[in-house]
Amino acid sequence: MSRSLGKTAAAEPTPSPLLEVRGLSMRFGGLLAVDTVNFDVRRDQIFAIIGPNGAGKTTVFNCVGGFYRPTTGSVTLDGQPIHHLSSHRIARLGLVRTFQNVRLFKTMTVVENLLISQHTQLETRLLHGLFKTPNYRRAEAEALERAVFWLDKVGLLPVANREAGNLAYGQQRRLEIARCMITHPKLLMLDEPAAGLNPQETRDLDRLINDLRAEHGVAVLLIEHDMSLVMGISDEILVMEYGRPIATGTPDEIRSDPRVIKAYLGEE
């Protein structure tokens, strides 16, 4: 893996990557949906996975996030193996995701969606809630404040009290991102976040993702079909086809990689 010129020059010891995926495979019956995939995501990186539909990108997310148990391979987050953990434990370790088909709590309000995702940080003990102890009130008030902060950030404050299911598509996508960010993740996984967005919304998304990394110190693992977005935003790209990784590198390297060109142009 080579990087663009200036970045690797310094002699400082390379810190261990945030996410290490080694030899990851996932088999569904006769179908090898993911075939020996390796990649690293560093702490400050925006890393993209691209590839045609059915290449196994979402399945990689599902394996990394603990929704599927990988057939073989290992996944390490911050030096800790996580491939045997269940999805909610992995989420608590700071790895959260959005879904290709947005999964909001549709009948709940926008604010409530943000409160649900803070569940693990709230005062959930029964008696505290029943008697509304000061602790409990404080936790709820702080949760609301955080919700307001993030709603403001993604521009959803005016619709805070609407039912999430009634939001416009682009708003739903942003709410899903806010819902992840409010948990203070280390790594944010976005599954086709620009799908269905108009060009303006896509540009906003681009800015938002950059801003999340810059101001909130989150690494981003991204699946995306919008090439201009991917090429502009990513530090590193993994290309998959039929479950196999066919190339890894910077956007420039990927753009000029003959295998990638063949895979993409050969299909279209």
Partner: peptide
């Protein structure tokens, strides 16, 4: 709230910890 959310979408709940 968590009961409600769980009834609506268990996978989303898990993805949030």
């Amino acid at each position: 709230r968590a009961w409600e959310a769980l009834r609506e979408d268990e996978i989303a709940c898990r993805s949030l910890g």
